[in-house]
């Protein structure tokens, strides 16, 4: 398992996190290349079905980035995302997929460093968890 390289799908909202990720580039910060980005207008566009579909297609992790609470370009989209992600984490766990494979972070357009750090952490975590399987759901989450 030592040379396992996880596959990760990243959903980033255009207004905050996508710009934050761009800033990493401009500042030449480095992070692992495992994740590929799908840009949405707002994090609230991400349908739980897309996340489930990604797991079905064999992703090892899904990373979602949105604007900080109160900063969503569309007023309250990120609150909706948060509710959906919390529910979905429970569902994943019930399906036997470790809920930590789905992570939501608030990253603003100025937080390039935070984006890089979060991607590094997330990739490390998924590496540790190993390839996705229906058997890796740990204890139940609260």
């Amino acid at each position: 398992m030592s040379n396992f390289e996880p596959k990760i799908v990243c959903f980033l909202c255009k207004w905050c996190t996508y710009s934050g990720a761009d800033l990493d580039g401009t500042s030449r910060l480095k992070y692992p290349p495992n994740g590929v980005v799908i840009k949405t207008m707002c994090s609230s566009r991400i349908d739980p079905e897309h996340i489930l579909y990604a797991f079905q297609q064999g992703t090892d992790g899904v990373f979602i980035g949105g604007c900080h609470p109160g900063d969503c370009h569309y007023q309250t989209g990120n609150y909706k995302t948060q509710r959906r992600v919390l529910l979905l984490q429970k569902l994943l766990q019930q399906m036997g997929i470790n809920f930590e494979r789905l992570q939501l972070e608030w990253i603003s357009a100025s937080e390039g460093k935070k984006y890089a750090n979060k991607i590094i952490e997330f990739t490390d975590k998924i590496r540790e968890l190993g390839p996705v399987s229906r058997m890796d759901g740990k204890e139940d989450i609260e």
Partner: peptide, 16 residues
């Protein structure tokens, strides 16, 4: 976007 989100943030040519 293969510059800001790829060539500028990765080192290994094969990976990028």
């Amino acid at each position: 976007n293969i510059r800001e989100q790829c060539s500028w943030v990765h080192n290994v040519k094969e990976d990028a």
